[in-house]
Design a protein around this nucleic acid. Structure first.
Lengths: 190, 190
DNA sequence: ACCTGAACACCGTTCAAGT
DNA sequence: ACCTGAACACCGTTCAAGT
């Protein structure tokens, strides 16, 4: 513990924080575009408190969906153990896309992370994990050269671009993952 | 003229309209996130007038960048005449991406069109023209099956996803068009 | 038919006052 | 150290009143 452990919050602050997050989760599920003020009111805290804990709505979004992001991150090594690299990559991206569509957890947090805090922990973790998948593919000479994790995430932004969600089973964009995979695996150095 | 020709506007209305558009063009160039109220004030019209002509900021955006969209649309047939289909498609997408980056004309209008008015004339024209390019490629058996123009535009949304613009020459996303092209042309039915 | 501008209901943000 | 809630500067939207 040579470094500053984040200085435990006072217990009322901690309580308020969890209260906000919990109420925000329910609220976002019902009303995706809910306002910070409304959430503060509903959670029974002052607006100043809200603002202290979550300076912007993206911060709140990340806090609410943190668990889902963790799941996504944890899934990667498991996939790499059980499948060959390219399939693992495909399944992971599929899962990423599966979270997509506005209103579902990870896509909103991803959008928030890429938008507001590209250097924040959420984006860092996700791109680090994706980088492992890409490296595995590269080692197997199954990936084209010079593609970064950030670029792949950029390419996947079609998932959370459309309001309606581009990932619905039948909808437009359902087949786009095939296109992306072929693009990523074409022209290998093999 | 069996149909309702859009009923010529009164001359003061027409004047106000062009005044708004002109001032908005300058303003957007300087301050991308400019507000409708500020533009109304700067253009010397009442807020009600602003609202009558452009119910939402996306409508204004489309009006401002209409000329650029026309250029893009007109470029397609020329490209098809002078190059083979796949190269034509590539050059057109390159041009589309070249408009990219927030703050440049077409990308903002495209984002506006896909977001607010997916059935509006701008998006219709662009996707129709892209469909011609795709059809030409398909006829030459150089395009994978079952890809629609809408999907390709969805895939290109990486261009206007990032705030900084993903299309800068050296920046991330510069090589993504290659990935997209390989993805689109892989697995042909040829 | 069109324009004006005050008015309304909202938003995020701040900050003095409390505990 | 943290919370509260009034206050501030803004936004889009509406609408009675004018021409």
């Amino acid at each position: 513990m040579t470094q500053s452990a984040p200085r435990a919050m006072r217990c009322d602050a901690q309580l308020n924080r969890t209260r906000i997050i919990e109420f925000a989760r329910e609220t976002f599920a019902a009303t995706p575009g809910a306002t910070l003020k409304a959430i503060a009111r509903g959670a029974g805290v002052g607006q100043g408190t809200m603002y202290r804990h979550f300076p912007t709505s993206d911060h709140l979004l990340l806090a609410v969906y943190w668990a889902e992001i963790d799941e996504l991150v944890d899934a990667a090594p498991r996939l790499l153990e059980r499948h060959e690299p390219v399939l693992a990559l495909r399944l992971w991206l599929q899962r990423l896309a599966g979270y997509g569509g506005l209103g579902t957890a990870v896509s909103r947090a991803m959008a928030a992370a890429t938008r507001a805090d590209p250097d924040g922990p959420a984006y860092q973790q996700i791109s680090a994990v994706l980088d492992e998948l890409l490296t595995a593919c590269r080692r197997a000479h199954r990936l084209r050269d010079g593609v970064t994790a950030h670029e792949v995430l950029l390419l996947m932004s079609y998932v959370w671009a459309a309001e309606g969600g581009a990932d619905r089973p039948g909808g437009p964009g359902a087949g786009l993952l095939d296109v992306v995979m072929d693009g990523l695996c074409g022209r290998t150095s093999h």
